[in-house]
């Protein structure tokens, strides 16, 4: 056949689109403001596609378990973890984190784990949401 793409194109016209319209059917003028409105229950969100098991999202830190061995600082590829020597704990700057979960693997007491939160974009790298301690 000379033009083999014609068939798939016609079929496509009757298929449902693949795209999941996230966060809303029509793009809001400000996504941040829209998500804030969702947070206080003023707007409804179109849910994102669920993350797969073992997804690497925002780090969860169990502060009580941490023994302050600083091994995670040694293996972190982007220097995102800072030591707090006076209380023997750590501080993670998520703005620098590359979500490799290497600190999870190296931790001897398993106080770090990867969550499934992924909406982390922001304008201030030192905001409260982007620092885990």
């Amino acid at each position: 056949m000379g033009f083999s793409m014609l068939g798939p194109v016609f079929k496509q016209m009757f298929k449902k689109p693949w795209t999941n319209k996230f966060p809303a059917k029509y793009q809001p003028s400000s996504t941040t403001k829209y998500l804030e409105a969702v947070g206080v229950g003023k707007a409804k969100i179109n849910p994102p596609i669920p993350t797969p098991p073992n997804f690497r999202g925002k780090i969860k830190y169990d502060k009580d378990k941490c023994i302050g061995c600083n091994l995670c600082i040694k293996v972190c590829p982007c220097g995102a973890i800072e030591s707090k020597p006076e209380e023997k704990k750590i501080k993670i700057y998520l703005a620098r984190c590359c979500f490799c979960s290497q600190c999870n693997d190296v931790c001897p007491v398993k106080c770090l784990s990867m969550g499934d939160e992924f909406l982390l974009a922001g304008t201030d790298p030192y905001s409260k949401e982007l620092i885990v301690e």
């Binding site: 797969p52 073992n54 997804f55 690497r56 590359c98 979500f99 490799c100 979960s101 290497q102 990867m114």
Partner: peptide, 15 residues
């Protein structure tokens, strides 16, 4: 890419 994400945890930077 979905299969990659399922096997490794992320779509692009597989780690």
């Amino acid at each position: 890419l979905d299969l990659t994400e399922y096997l490794t945890g992320n779509r692009v930077t597989k780690g």
